[in-house]
Every structure is written in structure tokens, then in C-alpha cells.
């Protein structure tokens, strides 16, 4: 197992863990955290697979295109998280709830 595959597998595990938490947890803050874990996993897959180049031991041998895409993705993920948190705060201010759906037991 090469280093690239190792990190890509870790990234896949993070994606699946995040997906589980996204489905199981009802609290929106936890859902946002789960989405962030999932995106971190995707970034790790990209960064890991960027090192599949044949001479992977040479310095700066990694494929720069996936790295640039991850750099883009991190910033977008942070911005989306900020927007999601603002929406959650607004939802709570309007309804007092921090979950979606009607099965609130009230």
C-alpha cells in the first residue's frame, strides 16, 4: 500500500463517518460539523491521490492541480459553513428550534 492510497483510504473513512453523523444527528450544528468532516475527507482523498506520480519521492513531485482544487475547496467549505451557521442562528431566533422537521414531540 503506497502512501497515496493510505491517505486516500483515511479520507474515504472520514467521508463515511461524516455521512453517518449527518444522517443520525438531528441537531443542525452537528450536521454542519458532519459536512465539514466529509469535506475534509474529500480533501484528503485529493491530496493523497495527488502523490500518485511515478517519482513520488522527488520534492514537489506531487500533482499540483488537485492541490490547487483542495485549496479552493477549503475556502468554499469555510464560507459555506459560515452561511450555514448564520442560517441556523436565524432559524433558532425565529422558531427556537435547532433541528429540521416536525417530529419534535410538540
Amino acid at each position: 500500500m503506497t502512501q497515496a492510497v493510505f491517505w486516500a483510504l483515511i479520507g474515504m473513512a472520514l467521508v463515511v463517518l461524516g455521512l453517518y453523523a449527518l444522517i443520525v444527528h438531528a441537531h443542525l450544528l452537528r450536521k454542519v460539523l458532519a459536512l465539514n468532516i466529509m469535506s475534509s475527507g474529500v480533501f484528503l482523498v485529493f491530496i493523497g491521490l495527488a502523490r500518485r506520480t511515478p517519482d513520488a519521492d522527488a520534492p514537489m513531485a506531487a500533482d499540483p492541480v488537485p492541490q490547487a482544487m483542495v485549496l479552493t475547496g477549503i475556502v468554499v467549505a469555510v464560507a459555506a459553513t459560515g452561511l450555514a451557521l448564520a442560517l441556523i442562528v436565524r432559524l433558532r431566533a425565529l422558531t427556537g428550534r435547532t433541528t429540521l422537521g416536525d417530529d419534535m414531540g410538540d
Partner: peptide
């Protein structure tokens, strides 16, 4: 996860990419 892992393992061989 098993399916995704198989997909990653299929990508294991060195690829030149766009480097």
C-alpha cells in the same frame, strides 16, 4: 466504505496526472 475503498485501490498504480 468498502466500495469506495475498492475504487481507491483501483487507482493505486502510479499515474502521471498533470504534474
Amino acid at each position: 466504505f468498502g466500495g469506495l475503498a475498492l475504487a481507491v485501490l483501483a487507482l493505486a498504480q502510479p499515474a502521471p496526472g498533470l504534474a
